[in-house]
């Protein structure tokens, strides 16, 4: 048996991609700063610029496909819908057209663009963080900073539960199909097949939570000793620290500027 892969555990874990290899807490910091900055700047061009930036970063991080497969859904579901609602109903003076109580103005369109840019920028930052940061690495860093391992387990198992729910739903749907129940077709047929599944799915999730806590107890999860870790992450470089700190300072300055403008 070739145990070459074990070498990974003897050294800090890296993927070889400089973006993915940023410290998880640096990535969290950047996500918050970059994702929230459009809320401070309040300019839709900046917001869309940030969204574009996240797409470019996802390409550089080598996770464009998984990032965009989720991002376009946010764009379509929330972005487009929000834009329509805002454009149709926000107040404004320069009317472009109106019909059946819907009043589209220049102001409402800008308001729509503004809100969409905010949603896209923040959701882009969040999705990018999730796609470039393995959750076990993130929780490892949290534990290194003194966060309880119970909290880190809750984060990890919550993410796993999402995957488990999807898999269980698929299994139940397949067994429904095997019993001759129509699970495909139009939206109503799908909903008719899916609704009865929700109850067992939730009950199953609740009981598996109980089982999982016993399983973790069997692994001495709450043993009153200091835990050790197989995982080891590289320490953040000076360059990384400077970039994060620089962006943090810019964000704080923007925030101060926004408050000053608001007070004036």
């Amino acid at each position: 048996m070739d145990y070459g892969f074990i070498e990974k555990y003897n050294q800090p874990w890296t993927s070889g991609n400089p973006i993915r290899d940023l410290n998880p807490l640096s990535k969290l910091n950047l996500m918050i700063v970059l994702g929230l900055s459009p809320f401070v700047v309040q300019n839709y061009v900046y917001g869309f610029g940030m969204a574009l930036l996240f797409i470019i970063i996802s390409i550089l991080a080598g996770c464009f496909r998984s990032f965009f497969s989720l991002y376009w859904k946010v764009l379509l579901l929330f972005g487009f819908f929000l834009f329509l609602v805002k454009a149709a109903f926000s107040p404004g003076e320069h009317v472009i057209f109106q019909i059946w109580g819907i009043r589209v103005t220049y102001e409402s369109i800008f308001s729509g663009l503004n809100i969409v840019s905010l949603v896209l920028a923040f959701s882009g930052a969040f999705i990018l963080f999730v796609k470039t940061t393995p959750m076990d690495e993130f929780t490892y860093m949290l534990e290194q900073k003194g966060v309880s391992h119970v909290v880190s387990f809750i984060i990890l198992s919550s993410f796993q539960t999402i995957t488990d729910l999807g898999q269980n739903a698929k299994i139940i749907m397949e067994s429904q199909k095997a019993r001759g129940i129509e699970t495909e077709g139009n939206v109503f047929q799908r909903a008719k097949a899916y609704l009865p599944v929700i109850g067992p799915l939730i009950l199953n999730a609740i009981s598996s939570t109980e089982e999982k806590s016993i399983a973790m107890d069997a692994r001495a999860f709450s043993a009153p000793v200091k835990h050790t870790y197989l995982m080891e992450l590289p320490k953040p470089s000076i360059k990384e620290k400077i970039i994060v700190l620089g962006l943090d300072i810019i964000f704080v300055l923007l925030l101060i500027g926004r408050i000053v403008l608001w007070l004036l």
Partner: peptide, 15 residues
């Protein structure tokens, strides 16, 4: 390795 991590076993021994 999880159980041993929880018991505080040193990494080299775990591996």
């Amino acid at each position: 390795a999880l159980g041993m991590e929880n018991l505080g076993v040193p990494k080299e021994e775990i591996i």
